[in-house]
Design a protein around this nucleic acid. Structure first.
Lengths: 219, 219
DNA sequence: GCTGACGGAACGGAACTCGATCATGGCTGG
DNA sequence: CCAGCCATGATCGAGTTCCGTTCCGTCAGC
């Protein structure tokens, strides 16, 4: 399962949005504290009412400290989003280790479960769905968009479960990721525990869609 | 086709976000000019970098005029979004009049085509995808969310094409609307004309999903 | 001329900067 | 080996700038 382990690792390298890499011990804690604060504030007041002052106060830091690490308000949200992505990938890797899936479908299902669990437990996780289209307008595709996910998943499914790799697989997985993201986000829009109807419908749709191209998930 | 006509009408009543109903002739033009300006600015600088000053300047109006019609910055975006929704519904109604579909699938396909066409031609149409989740966090469901769409479409499909109505139909259509919205938005994220692969895959998925519940689209 | 429409200076608050100050931990000399 | 020194990273928060919003004086339609 070499490939699966790799999926969980931090291959993002902290991204471009951090102004100063933390050198001393305490500042690493500061940085994650800032993100924890941002996550809490996002859940409380919402995505566009968040202020840098709120984040600073919640983290027990000053305004200046926020700007030491992030160039602007939006970058804080992006940092939060990046951490959420990392935690999602880590969770998927853990689930795969635990469940030891025999079929590609079980592996995909692990991904859906990880997403649902994080939506329930991880403060600010809803940021994942939001940020991404807005960024897309101005910048170029990067490691946080659905296409990157699709590549990663394609690697696992073809190497570990023998699905035919190539651009078609990546495309179908990107379509699947987009659909799953929207349906699961919808499940949590009016219901903090997730509307079970949308969640199970999402699983069924993902299954049927992929089976249509790759056949029943044999071992 | 009584129901189809109704779908295209303005049953939204201009919404709550307009401060002052235009009384004089010129001010109606002002109002739509403000929205045109907002649409242009959204396409240029993006959704969260838009400023009231930009909108005013682009519209050849002053700041005060913007606030005469809209209570705040967000309301301008909501107004833009509402107009986009109205135009979408109008376009769907036109397409239905023209195409005179014989089957429910052809009717659904009209909706997809309308959405794609507007994404291509209508400035600021991408706002449709954005605003809706953010509002959801704080307020209650309203006429602009996917559930309301689903209700409208369910009415047409059951009355005009004899699909079994009821909450299941509404639910399936809401799922379909969510998926279509995300896939079509993705089609236009990196490609201003819309990535044809995502568009046609969207049509296929919608078709297969609904056929799975309601059988082949007979006349 | 009355009432609605408009302009833009002024206000308040939030984003962001910057130089003073504090803390850390590697280094050095005993 | 370690005590204390000091270069440099980290923090703070008052100040600045920019932007959303108000408000009232002026202009235009009916």
């Amino acid at each position: 399962m070499a490939r699966i382990d790799q999926f969980g690792e931090d291959s993002l390298g902290q991204g471009r949005q951090v102004r100063t890499e933390p050198i001393q011990q305490r500042s690493a804690a500061r940085l994650s504290g800032l993100l924890d604060a941002a996550a809490a504030v996002v859940d409380e007041v919402g995505f566009d009412r968040i202020t840098t002052a709120m984040v600073a106060e919640r983290a027990g830091a000053s305004i200046g400290t926020v700007y030491r690490y992030y160039p602007d308000r939006v970058a804080v949200l992006e940092g939060l989003r990046e951490r959420a992505v990392q935690r999602f990938r880590q969770r998927v890797a853990e689930n795969l280790q635990t469940a030891k899936p025999d079929t590609w479908w079980e592996a995909v299902d692990c991904g859906i479960t990880a997403f649902v669990d994080l939506y329930r437990d991880e403060p600010g996780f809803r940021i994942l769905h939001f940020a991404d289209r807005e960024r897309a307008q101005s910048s170029t595709p990067d490691q946080l968009d659905s296409g990157f996910f699709a590549h990663q998943i394609a690697g696992i499914l073809s190497q570990e479960f023998g699905l035919a790799g190539g651009p078609d697989l990546v495309f179908h997985l990107e379509v699947a990721v987009e659909m799953a993201d929207s349906l699961l986000s919808r499940a949590f829009t009016w219901n903090s525990q997730g509307d079970e109807r949308f969640i199970s419908e999402c699983r069924r749709i993902m299954h049927d869609y992929l089976v249509g191209y790759y056949g029943p998930a044999a071992g």
